[in-house]
């Protein structure tokens, strides 16, 4: 339950971190909050020779409203994200997902970057970011690149991040007027693998028709899932004409949950269906109450 030896650096400058990462790339790991990493190291699941702690790089620790988008630094603690009034008001599902992570103490330790960039299907923030068309900013030797969350999650514990790259920021497009979002999840036990989670993010036209609707799923496959079908099918429909249950059924079609100790695949589908219904209903209510202020 103790990690093997390693070297450690905590640069306060991003360029320095990138340089170190390049130098030690074959056996270095980036540490933001460190919770997932340290647990894996204590259990000898990974044995990095070098840890680059980026939590002291100030520019990565900020939440900011940049007009067109919300900027969330990679080392922002999820507790801070949960508490942020700006996030709560305009990006409700992000606040809810942050508040659904682990427990109150771990939320003081876990960073946004850590929750976003592992490709673990149980992570709570990725489905919300997927549903909101977020972008991830990756920094590396050759500068920065922007990648859509949509193309980021490749498979179980696998993402589009390249060797030497560090996730530095998440950008979430400003939510339109009359938009609303929600994230709900089910666990059998706190801090254990979850059963499933659903993020719904919608916006309405002035006349009340669906302008956009999108869903993200956790615990519903081998990585985080963006359920696009309902958006393609129901954009332009009026909520009153499309039962929430029909949309939720379509969300379930895009899930491919695995049978395990948390439940059989068919049970998980029932859970996803119920959560999708609930999340969409909440998101709709929020959108109809005005959404973005």
């Amino acid at each position: 339950m103790y990690p093997p030896s390693f070297d450690y650096a905590a640069p306060d400058d991003l360029d320095e971190a990138i340089k170190l990462f390049e130098l030690h790339n074959d056996n270095a790991k980036i540490m933001t909050g460190g919770v997932g990493l340290i647990n894996a190291m204590k259990h000898h699941i990974i044995r990095p020779g070098f840890l680059i702690d980026i939590s002291r790089i100030r520019e990565l620790s900020l939440i900011g409203d940049h007009g067109g988008y919300l900027s969330i630094g990679a080392t922002v603690k999820v507790a801070e994200l949960q508490r942020s009034d700006l996030v709560k008001r305009n990006y409700t599902a992000i606040s809810e997902a942050a508040g659904a992570i682990a427990d109150p103490l771990l939320r003081n330790m876990i960073s946004v970057g850590g929750n976003v960039c592992t490709g673990n299907p149980d992570d709570d923030l990725p489905p919300v970011f997927l549903s909101m068309d977020a972008q991830y900013i990756l920094a590396g030797r050759n500068g920065r690149r922007v990648i859509d969350a949509d193309g980021f999650y490749l498979g179980h514990m696998s993402t589009a991040i390249r060797p030497g790259e560090i996730l530095v920021e998440v950008r979430v497009p400003r939510q339109a007027e009359r938009s609303g979002s929600a994230y709900i999840k089910r666990e059998l036990r706190q801090n254990d693998h979850l059963v499933a989670g659903v993020a719904a993010s919608i916006s309405l036209e002035e006349d009340g028709r669906y302008k956009r609707l999108a869903f993200g799923l956790s615990g519903s496959g081998n990585t985080s899932i963006h359920a696009r079908l309902p958006g393609a099918k129901f954009t332009g429909s009026r909520p009153i004409d499309v039962p929430v249950g029909d949309i939720a059924k379509m969300v379930v079609e895009e899930a491919s949950p695995l049978s395990d100790r948390q439940g059989s695949a068919s049970y998980k589908r029932k859970v996803i269906l119920a959560l999708a219904r609930e999340a969409l209903t909440l998101a709709l209510q929020r959108a109809e109450q005005g959404g973005q202020k």
Binding site: D103, R189, Q190, N191, D192
Partner: peptide, 13 residues
């Protein structure tokens, strides 16, 4: 294989 997955519940449960 953890105290959480073995089911020792927190106060909120």
């Amino acid at each position: 294989d953890s105290i959480a997955s073995a089911g020792v519940p927190p106060a909120r449960e």
